[in-house]
Each structure stands twice: as C-alpha cells, then as structure tokens.
C-alpha cells in the first residue's frame, strides 16, 4: 500500500461521510412516477423528470458489461495496481462503475455474474481516513 503522508482535509471527511449510504449499502433511488431504479442517487429522474424519488436499496448483484485493467492509477490507488474496473449492469437496471476484487486479470469476462462486497477503497496515508465502499467479485454461490 502507498504510505505517502497525505492528510485528509475536513471537507473530504464530510464528502466521504455523505456518500456512506451509496458506498456501504448500495442505496440509490426509485422513481415513484415511472418506477425506474437509479444509481447513484439523483434529485430528478433522468427518465421522466419526476422529483418524487424514494431511497431504494439494490440487492448488489449484476453482470459485467465491460471492463478495463488499470496500470496508471489516480492518486491514492497506487497500492492496488494492476486492478480491474468494470461497468456492471445491476439486476435492477442501472449501469455502475466499480473496481473488481478477488479476481485475476485473466479470469474476467463480459457477462460474468458478480456481487457487491464492501472493501477498502483507499486510505489517506497511515494517519488519515480509511475509505470503505462497494467493489464487485464473481458470485460465490447461488
């Protein structure tokens, strides 16, 4: 893991804290007007324009729509290289981007069934915040 000293700013503490529902529990929105499920959370339904959106917890399963392996990572992710990021079509409809985990590069396929797990996304150095959130791995069972 990268051990650079990078202190977390108070603004990013609040930002990470605000995203906990999405990152820990895959909570997005369901449109009361058209019934579409949305992730990430939005204020207005992009399908019908309704503002009547309610929290919706996704089951956390889907399939790989496409993927790419990262060798030149953004700051904070150096320790995971090489890692695979995928577009995942959730069973409820939305397409989300997430890192894959517990996979080998050669074992990833389009159409593969995956499930959500909670893992370390990054840490702000040895003194800073550890950020947890969703990643996806091949379905273990069922």
């Amino acid at each position: 893991m990268a051990r650079k000293k990078r202190k977390v700013k108070s603004m990013s503490l609040a930002r990470h804290w605000r995203l906990q529902d999405e990152r820990y529990k895959l909570i997005g929105r369901e449109c009361a007007a058209c019934g579409k499920k949305l992730f990430p959370t939005r204020d207005i339904c992009p399908h019908c324009g309704s503002r009547d959106l309610k929290p919706y917890r996704f089951a956390g399963r889907g399939e790989i729509y496409s993927y790419s392996t990262i060798y030149q990572p953004p700051a904070g992710y150096e320790g995971f290289v090489p890692y695979t990021v995928a577009l995942i079509r959730l069973d409820e409809g939305p397409l989300i981007t997430a890192q894959l985990t517990d996979v080998d590069r050669e074992g990833v396929e389009i159409g593969q069934r995956v499930e959500m797990v909670t893992r370390r996304l990054r840490e702000y150095g040895p003194e800073g915040l550890i950020v947890y959130g969703y990643k996806f791995r091949p379905v273990l069972k069922g």
Partner: peptide
C-alpha cells in the same frame, strides 16, 4: 487477506 481487506471488511461479510 487481500490488499483491500481488513478486520472491518471481513466482519461486514
């Protein structure tokens, strides 16, 4: 444990 695993992630699963 993998690179993104610790006591918290294992406890959650």
């Amino acid at each position: 444990p993998g690179l993104d695993e610790d006591t918290i992630t294992m406890a959650i699963e």
